[in-house]
């Protein structure tokens, strides 16, 4: 029994996540992702829901939620743009990319745009160093993105307003050098700033040409 007022589909996901571990508490991390999809972000209610489902106290769940940067405990934009500014990306001009994207979206680093469309953040290494500078939109990767392409990407997101963010589509349109050959394009992506996995219900087919 899932003791939270969630959609039937998310309750089902919660049940399989609980069943995947020998101890209920282990499901707290994946459940926080599902809760973020249910509530739009990891709100206090989302944390209380996860506490009720796992049998933890709200404080125990908050301790976890506040430790990890990918649990957004404040409202987050439709498109979360995470610009890597760690060493390899830094050496290849990442600070300029961050500034360009921040200007294009009129959104300071670490904040959400006033219309709720974008959140902008600088992040530590995302494992795309061979394709530096790199960024992610809703955790879908684009490599080899300089300041100009970064601006174009923001304008495209604003105009095309994709319901599903596809890494391969963005890479084709705005990306450059990649860390390695990605292989064939994939038509699966993210609907929200939560990693696009089947287990969370966020791996959805897109519309890439």
């Amino acid at each position: 029994m899932i003791s939270a007022d969630w959609s039937a589909a998310n309750k089902k996901r919660a049940e399989s996540l609980l069943a995947a571990y020998p101890e209920r508490r282990s499901a707290v991390m994946p459940l926080l992702y599902v809760a973020a999809l249910e509530h739009g972000y990891v709100s206090e209610q989302a944390q209380r829901d996860v506490a009720a489902i796992t049998g933890l106290t709200a404080a125990q769940v908050q301790a976890v939620a506040s430790f990890y940067t990918m649990y957004k405990r404040e409202e987050v934009g439709e498109y979360l743009i995470s610009v890597c500014t760690s060493i390899s990306c830094y050496l290849l001009g990442a600070d300029d990319v961050l500034m360009a994207i921040s200007q294009e979206t009129s959104t300071p680093d670490g904040e959400m745009s006033s219309d709720g469309m974008f959140s902008i953040e600088h992040v530590e290494c995302i494992g795309a160093c061979g394709g530096a500078p790199a960024l992610q939109v809703n955790y879908e990767l684009v490599e080899g993105v300089g300041p100009d392409k970064g601006r174009e990407l923001c304008r495209w997101l604003r105009d095309a307003r994709p319901g599903v963010v596809l890494g391969d589509e963005m890479q084709q349109l705005f990306g450059g050098r990649r860390s390695f050959d990605w292989g064939p394009a994939e038509d699966i992506g993210a609907t929200a700033p939560v990693p696009a996995l089947d287990a969370f219900g966020n791996a959805v087919r897109g519309h890439a040409k």
Partner: peptide, 14 residues
């Protein structure tokens, strides 16, 4: 798998 590796994790999930 680290959370930022959504696509690699999807491939492993599959």
């Amino acid at each position: 798998i680290r959370g930022e590796y959504a696509k690699p994790a999807r491939r492993v999930e599959r």
